[in-house]
């Protein structure tokens, strides 16, 4: 157990180091430099550019830049190239904005996928299974932004509620109840959109996992013992079918940043995904690299958590 923890910590640290090197190289070896981003801007005189280059260590060789960057990152001194504000504070603020979207989306995904997937597996090839299967394929295949527009048109024209942004402009003076409902309405569409793709994929996965388990010998044994169908499906089959999802539970963490770029752009939601998009547009390297680093940490922590959870739920695994 301790050996496993130690080994995987070392392994993950090495992976993290490699990720930091690779992302640093990708960004710095690409043609162009932030100092050249807007050569026509009168504020960027040659002296200005030179000063900027010095300030951000761009005049140093790459490996020194790398060391300086990660020193700054770990000491929390890293600042954005765009507005000189500390990156970690900016990210913290955006993180709090993304959090409600993420939580509601994840809850929706996990609460809908399992009942749907299990039901279609148990009643395989029945009308429910066929409908949900086709719907799932449609939801997987529809471009997110197109779907978002359809939903926006529907909601705005039919329900007459505001959906863009985190809250309506000038709502501060309204009563608390109105303000609360306003927040809820703004939250609904982006989180539903964020969840639909997840529901489609996850429910398919639950279904195939469940089907696989239902075909196992021990499920037949459970039937041979004369257990009622509910006990056969929900105790014997489900318990085994759930094992791989424990792994996935650790892997939803990185979804905090990755999955939300398009949705947050459409809804002008000031979250992490939109921040990443803006940083890429402005070539704000510190922000991009920091976001990347945090994501990598989340991925690695996620896999570690899922490994540990797996050990808890599967009696066959003892490390």
């Amino acid at each position: 157990m301790t050996a496993f923890l130690g080994r995987s910590l070392i392994q993950k640290t090495i992976t993290l180091f490699l990720v930091s090197v690779v992302s640093f190289l990708i960004i710095h070896l690409a043609p162009g430099e932030p100092s050249q981003i807007d050569p026509l801007n009168p504020k960027f005189s040659p002296e200005m550019v030179e000063r900027m280059r010095q300030e951000f260590h761009l005049d140093k060789p790459l490996h020194i830049q790398y060391l300086l960057f990660y020193r700054d990152l770990f000491s929390g001194r890293i600042v954005s190239w765009r507005d000189n504000l500390p990156v970690l504070n900016k990210i913290g603020e955006r993180f709090l904005n993304s959090l409600p979207l993420f939580i509601v989306g994840t809850l929706l995904t996990w609460t809908f996928s399992f009942p749907v997937g299990i039901r279609s597996a148990i009643r395989r090839d029945g009308p429910f299974d066929k409908t949900t299967t086709f719907l799932a394929y449609v939801l997987i295949s529809i471009p997110g932004f197109f779907f978002a527009y359809i939903l926006i048109i529907l909601v705005v024209t039919q329900l007459h509620v505001p959906v863009i942004g985190m809250y309506s402009f000038g709502i501060d003076t309204a009563s608390p109840m109105v303000r609360f409902m306003d927040r809820v309405w703004h939250l609904v569409l982006p989180s539903v959109l964020g969840a639909t793709g997840g529901i489609a994929v996850l429910s398919r996965y639950v279904r195939s996992q469940m089907l696989e388990i239902i075909g196992q010998d021990y499920v037949r044994t459970a039937r041979a013992k004369g257990l009622p169908d509910d006990a056969v499906y929900y105790r014997h089959a489900l318990r085994n079918a759930l094992l791989p999802f424990v792994t996935m539970f650790g892997l939803i963490l990185p979804g905090l940043i990755g999955g939300s770029v398009i949705i947050e752009s459409i809804f002008s939601w000031p979250g992490m995904g939109r921040m990443a998009y803006e940083a890429i547009l402005a070539r704000d390297y510190p922000v991009i690299l920091t976001l990347n680093f945090i994501t990598a940490v989340l991925v690695l922590v996620g896999t570690l958590i899922s490994d540990l959870l797996y050990m808890v739920v599967d009696p066959r695994i003892r490390l």
Partner: peptide, 12 residues
């Protein structure tokens, strides 16, 4: 059953 390994539920 024939295969006691696969006929017993591994998680109970």
């Amino acid at each position: 059953f024939q295969e006691p390994m696969t006929s017993l539920n591994p998680v109970f």
